[in-house]
Design a protein around this nucleic acid. Sequence first.
DNA 1: AAATGATTAAATCAAATGTTTAAATCAATT
DNA 2: AATTGATTTAAACATTTGATTTAATCATTT
Lengths: 196, 196
Amino acid sequence: METITTEQKIIRAADKLFTQKGYAATKTRDIAEEAGTNLALLNYYFGSKENLYKKVVQEKLRMLLGAMGPVLSDENISLEDKISSITENYTTLLLENEELPIFILNELSVNRKLFEEITQNTRQIAQPAIEKQLKERKMEISAKDLVVNTLSLTMFPFVAKPLFISSGLVKEEEFVEFITGRKEKIIGWIMKTTKK
Amino acid sequence: METITTEQKIIRAADKLFTQKGYAATKTRDIAEEAGTNLALLNYYFGSKENLYKKVVQEKLRMLLGAMGPVLSDENISLEDKISSITENYTTLLLENEELPIFILNELSVNRKLFEEITQNTRQIAQPAIEKQLKERKMEISAKDLVVNTLSLTMFPFVAKPLFISSGLVKEEEFVEFITGRKEKIIGWIMKTTKK
DNA sequence: AAATGATTAAATCAAATGTTTAAATCAATT
DNA sequence: AATTGATTTAAACATTTGATTTAATCATTT
């Protein structure tokens, strides 16, 4: 049975609109319309707009953090493989969800309170494993900088895409190619920063 | 005379709230209250909430782009100096306006239309000058990647600050120090990527 | 087919929200 | 002091918005 329940239709519509326009700018009636159902259903199934929003954010946050946590803390994965795995995972994920990072980062910045409720389970971005690997190899860069740099190079182009497009630095049609090309290079750039 | 006009009080209040919470979540009554004036003054001086918003965004965008454009296109500035100048300028600017980049990038992503009206004058992020410098030096990296990487390493930590904080990667108290420390290193990292 | 519970549509409510109005106050000029 | 124009205030207005209610419809079970 491939039937999509009304509940699912609503959550998909909410996902789309919240991600696109943010919490405050998204109206419950727009969600209902996008879902092809009625306004009352939203409250019937989810109780309130805020509740529905939490459901969406929780899932998005899980997506975003899920691509990183498990990899970083595993001591059996080499430094190179960690970097390339994170870059690989994120590039794939974000190419399919371009607005994901700007949505999460903005709502996190605007709605700190709501996030704190949700992220009781935010796992720490484990550094100990990396710190150890860096020391063993007598490398030049701190674990923090290594992680921050990898995420910066991988995620920022998605966050700043509208700026790059409107400033003419990158063209819309080239974007996917531009990102795909970078994926190969990022691991190389990062590795250069770990050596003297 | 140090007197701040009511008009200025309103625009400062609007600046603060729009930057903090975004367009849709900011209520005209909140702006009036923050400014310590009457609600009607907002429309008296600025006509509408949207108009006031445009004023704020225009100024913010000017701040953000102003730190980059002139430097990049000047052929008399060496590549190293361009990188360090951009990094230096942005670090200083963003330490004093931490929410500036996430505000601009998010509103740009959510409100594309409104921005297009404003950015008739967005100067292109000039690459020709850099492209030329890269070719002369037989370097490894494209101008696009060079600019994107420099901006990524410099700006992303501000954009992702709440994520870094809530994940425990960086502590609130260390943030300024963390950023200041990176400023010195970024130029080095970037330069490594330009060499074989 | 009747009964039962789940699902849906339409109408309605109360609060909020952007904007306007009309009168009052203030400051500078005559 | 009177006049004039700019500024400020309080109140009101129209619409939007999140949420609820009520009745109708549908699907499943008896």
